[in-house]
Structures are given as structure tokens and as C-alpha cells.
Simulated assay, not measured.
Amino acid sequence: MTDTPESRLQALGFTLPAAAAPAANYVPFVISGWQLHIAGQIPYAADGSLLKGRLGDDLDVAAGVAAAERCAIGLMAQMKAALGDLAMVRRIVKLNVFVASAPGFTDQPEVANGASNLMVKVFGDAGRHARSAVGVAALPRGVAVEIDGIVEISA
């Protein structure tokens, strides 16, 4: 089997879903020059259900990590929809991770590692990125995590 981002993703036990359609008046991604800007992705489980809840309230860090991984899968689905092939990704430049957090919850960086670690496993050194991990009171549809990203793309 050829060593590609998609084959590495499959080896990790993940299946790339179809890219999620926008839920409001926006586009799921924009290509500007050599950058792909991806709108916020929310965590859909493999069965299509949403991963909902608030960290430090009804969810623990492990559940948050799993939700962040599912957001990363959504980001990769958008990359494939935009580029046709994940091999066109030159670098994951930046991830902005929003974590629905109860007052006093401060482990947003550990939750965000779910997405960051998966990007490195799938893209290698090109998956290392700048990142923000921010706690928020609530996210759309009651989800636990939302992540948007900027990706450098190949010609």
C-alpha cells in the first residue's frame, strides 16, 4: 500500500466521510493563493451523531480529545473536497480550537491535542502547526469542540 495521508488515516482506524455541508450562510472553505481556509468543523461521530456536552461539566478530557479528533476528521474531509487529494496539503499552518468549557475548566490544550496529534500522525512534520485553544461557554448545536484551520497547499 502506498504511504499517503489517506492510507495513514485508514491505518489509524478512521474513514474519511463526505465533507459536511454548511449549516448557514457561509462556504465550507476558501482557497486564497496557496492557502486553504476551512470553516469551523464540529464533531460528528462515525455514526453521524454529534458529540455534545461541556468539558468539566458532563464530559471529561478523554471525551474532549475524541471530539477534537472528529473535528480534525471533518477538517480533512474539507481538505479532500477542496483539493481532491490530501497529498496536496503542504502544511497544516494553524488550528483554532474552541472547547465548550464549564467554569474553572482549564485543560483546553489537552483537548486540542486530539486534533493536533492526529494531524501529525496523518501528515508527519507537515502536520505540525500553530494553534489556539480557547474555552467558550457554548458552541453551535451544543457540541463539545469546534475547530477551524488554515492549510498551505501545493500547486
Results as ranks from 00 to 15, higher is better:
122 V>W: 05
132 S>E: 12
150 I>Y: 02
12 L>I: 10
129 H>Q: 15
123 F>Y: 12
39 A>C: 02
62 A>E: 13
138 A>L: 07
83 L>G: 03
73 I>D: 05
152 E>C: 01
59 L>C: 10
155 A>N: 09
35 Q>I: 03
37 H>M: 03
136 V>P: 05
12 L>Y: 12
79 M>F: 04
72 A>N: 02
65 V>I: 15
70 R>A: 14
77 A>V: 07
121 K>V: 00
42 I>T: 11
105 F>A: 01
54 R>F: 05
66 A>C: 01
128 R>Y: 12
86 L>M: 14
11 A>D: 11
1 M>T: 13
8 R>W: 12
140 P>W: 05
133 A>P: 15
147 I>C: 06
147 I>H: 07
154 S>W: 11
102 A>R: 09
88 M>F: 13
7 S>Q: 10
119 M>H: 05
98 F>V: 01
90 R>P: 07
120 V>K: 09
80 K>H: 13
51 L>E: 02
45 A>L: 08
99 V>W: 11
21 A>Q: 13
19 A>D: 04
83 L>R: 06
48 G>F: 09
53 G>L: 04
150 I>H: 02
52 K>I: 10
4 T>I: 09
143 V>I: 06
155 A>V: 12
24 A>S: 15
34 W>Q: 08
4 T>H: 03
37 H>A: 12
104 G>W: 07
68 A>M: 06
14 F>S: 01
96 N>R: 12
73 I>Q: 01
51 L>N: 01
136 V>L: 07
66 A>N: 10
108 Q>S: 04
28 P>A: 11
19 A>Y: 11
133 A>E: 08
43 P>E: 02
40 G>E: 09
66 A>G: 03
103 P>W: 10
93 V>K: 07
134 V>M: 07
99 V>C: 04
56 G>I: 10
133 A>L: 03
99 V>K: 00
53 G>S: 06
5 P>H: 06
107 D>E: 14
136 V>K: 03
51 L>M: 14
68 A>Y: 12
97 V>L: 01
32 S>E: 13
42 I>Q: 09
42 I>H: 07
90 R>L: 08
100 A>L: 04
13 G>N: 07
17 P>H: 03
107 D>H: 13
137 A>F: 09
100 A>K: 01
31 I>Q: 06
62 A>Q: 09
130 A>T: 11
90 R>Q: 15
57 D>K: 11
13 G>F: 15
145 V>E: 04
62 A>F: 11
26 Y>K: 02
68 A>R: 02
35 Q>T: 14
32 S>K: 12
108 Q>L: 00
65 V>R: 09
27 V>S: 10
147 I>A: 01
128 R>E: 07
42 I>C: 01
41 Q>G: 03
3 D>K: 08
76 M>N: 04
18 A>P: 00
141 R>F: 15
69 E>F: 09
67 A>E: 06
20 A>P: 04
